[in-house]
Computed example of a mutant assay.
Amino acid sequence: MLRSYLRLTLFALGLLVGVQVPGFIEAYAQHVEARRLEAQQGLQGFQETARRFFHGDLDVLVEHYRTSEDPVFQSDAQSVSVLVERARLLEREWQAMQRPWYARAWHVAFAGEPRLRGEVWSGYRFQVLLAPEAIAWGIGCALALAWLVESLLLALNYPFRSKRRHGRRLYR
């Protein structure tokens, strides 16, 4: 009886963990989009300058700042370069979050920017969504966790099974 309750508890735990997946992916996508818009806004003036003088190429603008005789421009080259790289990173992340659900899940879990994922995790509020994708994730995770633990326990128990006991079952 205790074993049945443990199985149910394990299944419920898997279900609760699984329903968090779509919410976390959505929170990550929203975080990336907000940061991307913020980065674009921060680069707006530099993009206008690059459009006017360098055919819109921000890399040429940064290189111009680096090679300038003016120490102020040289100093600002690093700051602008960091802004440009950040905007490109956020654009790549945003593009990844426009793909199908399975690609989004894989990206967030394994290929997403660790710092962004950490920011989202620190502000994430656990919730039980009753959306179809959350229910599917929940049931899938619950079944996978239950199957994995059950298989592991059976595999660990296998060497300790009595051959004598096993033999009796065959002949009855």
Rank of each mutant, 00 (worst) to 15 (best):
V108E: 09
V108R: 07
V108P: 05
A109N: 03
A109R: 08
F110T: 02
F110K: 03
F110C: 01
F110G: 00
F110Q: 03
F110P: 00
A111M: 10
A111T: 05
A111F: 11
G112N: 04
E113I: 08
E113Q: 14
E113P: 02
P114G: 05
R115G: 07
R115K: 07
L116V: 15
R117I: 09
R117L: 12
R117C: 05
G118T: 02
E119S: 10
E119A: 15
E119T: 03
V120E: 03
W121Y: 11
W121T: 05
W121L: 14
W121I: 06
G123D: 12
G123E: 12
G123L: 13
Y124V: 00
Y124G: 00
R125N: 11
R125M: 10
F126Y: 11
F126E: 06
F126G: 10
F126A: 15
Q127V: 13
Q127A: 15
Q127M: 10
L130I: 03
L130K: 01
L130T: 04
L130R: 05
L130S: 03
A131P: 03
A131L: 12
A131V: 09
A131M: 11
P132Q: 07
P132D: 08
E133M: 05
E133V: 07
E133Y: 01
A134I: 10
A134Y: 04
A134W: 07
A134H: 07
I135P: 09
I135H: 08
A136P: 04
A136I: 12
W137D: 14
G138R: 03
G138D: 08
G138N: 08
I139D: 02
I139E: 01
I139N: 00
I139T: 08
G140S: 12
G140C: 03
G140H: 01
G140D: 05
G140N: 08
C141F: 12
C141P: 02
C141I: 14
A142R: 00
A142P: 03
A142I: 00
A142L: 00
L143I: 08
A144S: 13
A144R: 08
L145Q: 00
L145D: 01
L145K: 00
L145I: 09
A146S: 15
A146I: 00
A146G: 06
A146V: 02
A146W: 13
W147H: 06
W147L: 14
W147D: 05
W147M: 12
W147Y: 11
L148W: 12
L148D: 05
V149I: 15
V149R: 00
V149G: 01
